[in-house]
Design a protein around this nucleic acid. Structure first.
Lengths: 335, 335
DNA sequence: CCCTGCAACGTAATCGTTTACTGTAATTAA
DNA sequence: TTAATTACAGTAAACGATTACGTTGCAGGG
């Protein structure tokens, strides 16, 4: 099997130099129409395939970015990925998806691999807080922007919604619907944004509306369906009274609905619940889930733009706070 | 900002040749322990970073594969991706995820980009049948294996379950539960495997059990929740009587449950339903969905192994049929 | 008629690796 | 003692592009 032809072969066949071939290939100036025709014919007749690796080496640029996500099981990242990919495609970038694991365990080796492969930039999605992933990224020197999270120690630009405010709004929504005893399925204590901030918003809303706060109505669930289900079962088995639940994410909210189903309760008749994220999971739940909507697709798109702004124009991106909204469906009732 | 150091710099600092540096870098033989120490110290003190692009160029191998998926919105691909990624990681491959669109519209440009970027291989997941994507792949010459689909015109190796048999089993399961009038939410007519074969399985099961087949109980739904919902509503609004539904995938099954919910019906009291795929969607549905389970994670893993077997040892992979099983949950009742 | 300027190319260095050849000294076998 | 082998290491040519710089020829101005 013969090797695939290079610009050298094309040049030979067309009786021009490699420089000229390169020039027509890249749409530069410096050749006549006849020359272009010759070159294009030579390319066609040889079945020439462009080799981007050689270009990458010479140009020290790969037009590739990596997206780091902790989990692939959840639909949460899909919209973000979608947004990133659409934007990347527009600008001729490729996207590598790196599943770094919920504990960030694979991150170290991934970052190493990515720097070796000379990716131009990294987008980190809601990275787990524990392992100092931000440190690894910062030290690698690869340009990065964060989505739906932030770094407390390093000034990596981020894009996210104000989680505290959003959780405040979600809680206030329940209160406005007449709920006075509201539980929270909180994520994890150590997750700075999705855990801590959302919990704070919940607590602040209760305080501002002069509702009592009961520590036993707060259950730490993680952000997955499985862990959420455990916690929700526990909450329901405790004899605590409540009429509303604020969940840290849609999956956990659905887990709570499932726990209700298991014990013969139903939503919103027996209790109301509001989710967070507005993923497809929320839409497909029964009953359809009222939830806080994050503009995930837009956030992904914007993150990519911030990154390329940095890469190609050297603009140090400003972090951005995106708007959220509450989408009303069927999981909350007026009491 | 100084350029990052290369093996040349390392060689200079350690007073050896680049060949030697390369040798210690790759763990080959041909150097003494003292030399190795010198080299490693030089690398450390310079903060040397390996450049994989240069290697890729020289070796004509990128250790990168691309995974083509039609949609990113669904959870169906997540398990497959997970399997592929785990296997890839083990063997030091990177994975690029390419969202080619449900109509395969972006495939042409993607294939071009991928060949330019010299990916070593492609894994195609349940590619849409219409656009001759298999043709594009075959013509590109990039080694490929297919997951959960097949190519009728080109002999691209595939790995999938026997969709006809699985749909037959699903339908038979309903029949065994006493259902005599069974509808099907079929995918699309032109999808060779997930559409046509599953429909055939359904029809064959009815025939073998001497149940009448009613064309009006077959509704073509596509494979998404949204299109499934439309079709399910239509089926429920028609005055056709049935007690069971075979769905072409979990998302469509959940859509049917939603349609039931909308019209005040409930599952499995008013009708039973069995899904297909056993994605997380099935597990999280209310009621939890009885469904045909495909070993998606394993299939992804296996697909990668087949691909590398081809790439690294030149073994032309044999297509494989994977086993399925029916996982019983709560969406089917005995009549 | 000479000089300038520009369009249209070609030459060759370069990007950072790998590795086929060599070369040398030390070790081993005979 | 000598020839053969081995361990250790260096030289330089690839890999397939890009591009700075140089060259040529010709049009037009003076």
């Amino acid at each position: 099997m013969s090797n695939s032809p290079t610009i050298k072969d094309v040049a030979a066949k067309a009786n021009v130099s490699v420089a000229t071939v390169s020039r027509v290939l890249n749409g530069l100036s410096g050749f006549s129409v006849e020359t272009e025709k010759k070159v294009r014919e030579a390319m066609a007749s040889l079945g020439y395939q462009y080799n981007a690796i050689a270009r990458n080496l010479k140009m020290k640029k790969t037009n590739t970015i990596a997206v780091l996500i902790p989990r692939v099981e959840t639909t949460f990242y899909l919209n973000i990925l979608n947004g990133i990919e659409d934007a990347a495609n527009d600008q001729n970038y490729s996207m590598m998806v790196c599943h770094v694991g919920i504990s960030g365990s694979r991150t170290r080796e991934y970052i190493k691999m990515l720097t070796e492969r000379q990716v131009d930039g990294i987008i980190g999605c809601s990275l787990p807080p524990d392992e100092g992933i931000d440190k690894l990224i910062a030290e690698s020197g690869v340009p990065c922007v964060l989505v739906s999270t932030l770094s407390t120690r390093y000034s990596i630009p981020y894009i996210r919604v104000d989680d505290c405010e959003a959780a405040y709004a979600a809680t206030s929504y329940l209160i406005a619907k007449g709920h006075k005893s509201i539980a929270m399925l909180a994520g994890t204590k150590d997750d700075v944004v999705a855990g801590k901030l959302r919990l704070e918003g919940y607590q602040k809303a209760l305080a501002d509306h002069r509702l009592p706060m009961d520590e036993e109505l707060i259950e730490y669930t993680g952000f997955s369906y499985e862990t959420g289900l455990q916690a929700a079962r526990k909450l329901l088995k405790s004899q605590k009274k409540f009429t509303g639940i604020v969940a840290c994410c849609d999956e956990v909210a659905v887990a709570a609905i499932m726990a209700a189903y298991e014990s013969g309760l139903s939503v919103p008749e027996d209790f109301s619940i509001i989710g967070y994220d507005n993923t497809r999971t929320a839409e497909m739940a029964i009953p359809p889930l009222t939830t806080v909507s994050q503009p995930l697709y837009e956030m992904g798109k914007r993150a990519f733009q911030m990154l390329t702004g940095l890469l190609e124009n050297g603009i140090r991106p400003e972090s951005e706070i995106m708007p959220f909204e509450i989408v009303e469906r069927k999981s909350v009732r007026q009491v």
